[in-house]
Each structure stands twice: as C-alpha cells, then as structure tokens.
C-alpha cells in the first residue's frame, strides 16, 4: 500500500486525537487525586505510583504468570487497591499533626518507597503488555487511531459514571462527601471518618490501577514512570478545580490537547512548557481552577 499524502487538515485532526487520548490518561490520574482530596484535602503525590503498579502487576499476572486478561485485570486492581489501603494505614493515618507540608512529604516518602520496591521487584527495564484488541490501527479521515485508545476512553467514561452514581446515590458515597465538607460534624452524626479515608485511598488506587493497565499497551511501563504522571495529573486537577470530577476530566483533556497542538504547531521541545504556561495563566485569572468554586475553597483548610 503506497503511503498516502497527508494534508494539513489530517495533521490537525491527528493532533486532536492524540491530545485527547494522552489527556484521558491525565484525567484518570486527576480523578484519583480528587477522590482522596474530597475526603481528606490531601493531594496524594503517590497517585502516579498506583498507575505504575497497575501496569507492572498486570504485566506480571498476564504476561509472566499467563493468567487470562479477564482474571488478571480484576486481580491487579485488587492488589493495587490493597497497596492504596496500606498507604493510608502506614503513612497517612499515623500522622498526628497534619499540615499541607507534612502530608505532601508523607505522600512523597510513600512514593519513594513504592518506587524503590518496584525497582527491586521488576528491575529498571520497561515492560510491554499486549493490546486488548490487537494493534491494527484504525484509519479515520486520514488520521490514525490505536484501538487501545477506545479502551482508555471507554474506561474513563465507565469510571465517571460509576463515581457519579456512587457519590450521589449510595449512602457510603454520601457519607464520604460529608467527611470532606465537615469532618467534625460527620463524625458527630456517626460516620466513621477514618474508614471513609481508607475507602477513599482504596478507590483512588483502584482507579490508578485501571489507568496503568489501559495505558501500558501503548506507552510501556517502567518503575519510575509514576512521578511524571503524578505531576501531569496534579496539573489537570488544579486546572479543572480541586475536588471537581468534571473539572478533572476537562483539565486533563485540555492539558493533553495543548501539549499535542503545541508540539505539532510550534515546538515539540517546549510542549510541556506550553501546557504549564496555560495552566499558570488560568490560575492567575481563576484562582480556584476552571470549575472550582471560590466560595467552597474558602472553607477548605488547605
């Protein structure tokens, strides 16, 4: 098949598609940030490590141990969820005088430890995972889409629907939201705040694992990928507004798209800088993010 000539319009479409898929992974990390933030007001900088673990544990179960994908997938999520719960029990709960700094350092320490252990287990090389539905790219108006992209976006949508239902329809979900609004009052009405925090770490780790499993077939995975993912996710969550789920998705997609258009149209070496400059500009104009509420943020401790 001779290579077709690519037009400028095709290129723009390709930039958009790439931006949206890369942005979806940022959004998934950002959602993980928000779940914990909403209950505890902590930014968990070890969030990226959940994604890394998701990818590597899946590689171990599916590729090395040979478990079928339908079994390896849930098992991976469960294992990473347990790591998330351990993180809360061992690193967050023991802290008696929480402040922004101590909590940030605690999650950084945790991420250093998790990364170190991952290096010990898997070594330093990147690993690959077979794509869920093959590697034959789909052609669309001159642009190319990896089938795996649909899995990423699909899982993002499923997660959003699940979380919306969970926080708005179930009692546990409502209780978790209550902890965020006023932990003192929440415990007065009989909500076990500590258990809710544990649950938030579990949920967030599970979502991180799903993100890791779905992106590894495209981008490979190695032990030290977590930090970069955490930074991008943090950017997305702040751009969208802390605590807001639609904000996290919007923030992630915007960051991904700016990076891709910046690289395609201006200069690829500065693509991360473009995204961050836009982020700074947005913060200076709207100090609580695009969809964050200034009124609400006044009541937050951090």
């Amino acid at each position: 098949m001779p290579m077709e000539k690519i037009t400028f319009a095709n290129q723009l479409l390709q930039y958009l598609i790439t931006g949206l898929t890369v942005g979806s992974t940022y959004a998934m990390v950002a959602i993980g940030f928000n779940i914990i933030y909403n209950v505890t007001e902590i930014i968990n900088l070890a969030q990226g490590e959940f994604v890394m673990l998701g990818g590597l544990v899946m590689v171990f179960l599916h590729v090395a141990a040979g478990l079928p994908i339908v079994l390896a997938f849930p098992l991976t999520v469960i294992i990473v969820t347990l790591v998330g719960m351990l993180l809360d029990r061992l690193a967050i709960r023991p802290i008696r005088q929480p402040s922004v700094l101590t909590l940030i350092i605690a999650t950084i320490a945790a991420s250093i430890i998790i990364k170190g252990i991952a290096m010990f287990i898997w070594g330093k090389d990147p690993f690959d995972l077979p794509a869920f539905s093959g590697r034959h790219p789909i052609h669309f108006l001159g642009a190319v889409i990896q089938p795996q992209y649909f899995w990423i976006i699909g899982f993002l949508i499923v997660i959003v629907i699940f979380l919306t239902l969970f926080f708005e329809k179930t009692i546990i979900g409502k209780a978790m939201s209550a902890c965020a609004d006023n932990p003192g009052a929440a415990s007065l009405v009989g909500i076990n705040v500590k258990r809710m925090i544990l649950l938030s770490f579990a949920l967030s780790a599970a979502i991180g694992a799903v993100a890791g499993i779905t992106i590894t077939p495209i981008s490979l995975m190695e032990y030290d990928r977590g930090a970069m993912l955490a930074i991008k996710g943090f950017g997305a969550v702040v751009l969208g507004g802390l605590g807001s789920f639609p904000g996290a998705i919007l923030g992630g997609l915007i960051l991904g798209t700016i990076e891709s258009f910046g690289a395609g149209l201006i200069h690829s070496g500065y693509k991360d800088a473009f995204a961050l400059i836009v982020l700074l500009g947005a913060l200076f104009l709207r100090p609580s993010g695009l969809l964050g509420s200034i009124e609400v943020s006044k009541f937050k401790r951090f």
């Binding site: 930014i43 940030i104 702040v238 802390l242 500065y270 961050l276 700074l280 993010g289």
Partner: peptide
C-alpha cells in the same frame, strides 16, 4: 502568592518546570 494551598504549590511547581525546560532547551 494570591493563590492558596495546593494551587500555590502547583503554580510554583509549574514555574520550576518551565525554567528547567528553558535550561534544557
């Protein structure tokens, strides 16, 4: 410095990364 808490953390973090990219590029 008009920003608060995590927003300020992100803003200074972004500034640091941008400067680093300039040194690199």
């Amino acid at each position: 410095l008009k920003l608060k808490g995590h927003y300020l953390a992100m803003a200074t973090l972004a500034f640091g990364i941008i400067v680093f990219i300039i040194f690199n590029e």
